[in-house]
Design a binder for these strands. Structure first.
Lengths: 122, 122
DNA sequence: ATAACGTACAACCATATGGTTGTAGAAATT
DNA sequence: AATTTCTACAACCATATGGTTGTACGTTAT
């Protein structure tokens, strides 16, 4: 049902929400790690966890909606494989935050020299 | 109420959950970006968003529990500042996933040479 | 053809999440 | 001393999340 054209490199806020949300669960992170190493069927994945097949299926669906994994039919099974590009997008975002952090001193200096320093303490 | 000893460099699954969960909301990501650039009070932050003070306060609490920001009292206001180390931990995790991805071909070759290739297609 | 396997999905449940309003207290201002 | 500012937190509400079981359907195997 997802239309999946060529992957944009600009993500909407909602898409970023979905990516981090998908990664905010240990079972899902484990699924990601497994399929990045070696793609495998949903039922194979399900056998690895102490929960129902349906539960694992839902986790896979969450990861799929976030674009972190994709599924491809092979006969009666659905093969799950990882999409490193999406993970890279998330990493890029975190790197930009770190970049903001590294530049914070310069920015503060800038603000102090251009603005008045009302409320400044030290 | 949080006891905050020296920061470990190994995170528990629950802590990782909290970090990604905290980043899975556009308002909270914006708060992070703001305080990384320039630390500011909770009420200053609250003034930036079209939601109640209490709602923003909750977002700040979520980020604080995840260790992404910390608060420090300055008179009657609570100054929020970013903790880039936690963000770096998250980035490190994503990098490890990408590393798994980069090595997948070698692993598949390894598996194919040791195992039989039942179901192999191409 | 029948059985078994792999998947999909609906219905349900408990708890978490993201928002609200209201109350209360501590610190600064007047 | 009285008032305002900033923060904290409880109570509440609607919706989302993570799990379950049950049913159905296409694909492979017997």
């Amino acid at each position: 049902m997802v239309v999946e054209i060529a992957p944009r490199d600009t993500l909407t806020e909602a898409e970023i929400d979905a990516i981090f949300q998908a990664l905010a669960d240990a079972t899902r992170r484990d699924i990601v790690a497994r399929v990045l190493v070696r793609e495998q069927s949903v039922s194979t994945l399900a056998a690895s966890y102490a929960m129902s097949f349906a539960a694992v299926q839902k986790h896979v669906a969450v990861l799929e909606r976030a674009g972190i994994i994709t599924k491809a039919r092979r006969g009666r099974e659905q093969i799950v494989h990882g999409n490193a590009r999406t993970i890279e997008s998330a990493r890029g975002l975190l790197e930009r935050y770190e970049e903001l952090w590294r530049h914070r001193i310069a920015r503060i200096d800038d603000l102090l020299s251009t603005e008045g320093d009302r409320h400044a303490h030290s």
